[in-house]
């Protein structure tokens, strides 16, 4: 190689071609490496790591079940593998914090849910604003293992801790004119930051017919797996209606009102043709944009058939006798 050098330039002043070439190669390698790191960095920024640690708590080590009433048979305690605590707490639909299901846990971390009170009013003889500790003394806390079917066609099996909503409603003595119950989530954009974006018409409102609200399966839940309700799952108090799609299970409740008219509900207002007031799990009535016939069990493998009323048809079917469920979706 050195023989190629022009003779009229002192050989010492010329960069050795091999050095030159290797420097070029080095620069190229540097540029390539930097670009790969930058691309990887941008990708990682847009797609954060979502860990899925093994379950920390199990029902057997944290017994909370007290005096489970067996009137509903196995419906109170579904005999199916429970979804892990980690999956239940890292895959959430809670738009007040984030519209990314895997991002809610981080966004909700540090949410303060004490002190907390719930105002119960409307058509009842004893309206009251009750402190959370008072509410939790309404009835013994029971563990209920329920299927949870999201309208997005995924499902979980969740061991809730709570007590029947009917017990709380009985405390305020509903009038006979009360036909519906309306629930409202906290509205406080400083604590629920995604409420600054009008993804939905805040605050979140849900409702039940009186007979649905008084049904023994309808639960006010204050915990999961014996742990206080995590913020991402609706701390400190949320509704669980296992035969309805998950969005009926309103979270972080601050207000309960008894009314004589069907209340306007958040998802129903957002998409009247897509999300009905009843929102009963029904494999025969598809969402306009996707099928409801099957569901994906989180942590499980493959798809499974969705059951009528999410498998609670024996317990709740009579509530809807004679109703056109395709019209009243």
């Amino acid at each position: 190689m050195s023989s190629d050098r022009p003779k009229d330039v002192p050989s010492g002043e010329i960069t050795d071609p091999t050095v030159y070439a290797s420097r070029r190669t080095l620069i190229k390698a540097g540029v390539l490496a930097a670009s790969l790191l930058a691309t990887g960095g941008v990708y990682r920024l847009l797609n954060p790591v979502r860990h899925r640690k093994p379950a920390i708590f199990t029902a057997s080590t944290q017994p909370t079940t007290q005096g489970v009433i067996d009137s509903m048979g196995s419906a109170f305690n579904v005999n199916e593998p429970k979804t892990t605590f980690e999956d239940i707490t890292n895959y959430n639909n809670f738009y007040e914090f984030s519209t990314d299901k895997t991002g809610v846990a981080d966004a909700a971390a540090g949410f303060v849910s004490r002190p907390w009170s719930v105002t119960i009013g409307g058509l009842c003889s004893k309206p009251a604003t009750l402190d959370l500790d008072d509410i939790l003394k309404t009835a013994p806390i029971e563990q209920r293992v329920y299927r949870m079917r999201c309208v997005e066609a995924w499902s979980m099996v969740i061991p809730w801790d709570g007590f029947p909503l009917s017990k709380l409603l009985e405390r305020v003595q509903p009038l006979s004119s009360a036909k519906y119950v309306t629930f409202t989530t906290l509205f406080d954009p400083t604590r629920m930051p995604n409420q600054r974006r009008r993804v939905l018409d805040w605050p979140y409102v849900e409702g039940l017919r009186m007979d649905e609200a008084m049904h023994p399966l309808t639960l006010l839940a204050s915990g999961i797996y014996g742990q206080p309700m995590p913020p991402q799952d609706g701390a400190p108090l949320r509704l669980v209606v296992p035969w309805k799609y998950g969005f009926k299970g309103i979270k972080s409740i601050v207000k309960i009102e008894l009314t004589d008219k069907q209340p306007p509900t958040t998802w129903n207002l957002a998409g009247p043709g897509e999300y009905g007031f009843y929102a009963n799990v029904n494999p025969n009535v598809d969402h306009p944009r996707w099928s409801q016939a099957t569901e994906r069990r989180i942590g499980g493998d493959g798809n499974r058939r969705t059951l009528m009323f999410n498998g609670y048809a024996d317990q709740v079917g009579h509530l809807y006798a004679g109703m056109d469920l395709a019209a009243n979706y």
Partner: peptide, 11 residues
């Protein structure tokens, strides 16, 4: 490495 969250197929 199971870093795609609870519903890896959907991710």
């Amino acid at each position: 490495h199971d870093q795609l969250g609870a519903n890896p197929n959907e991710a």
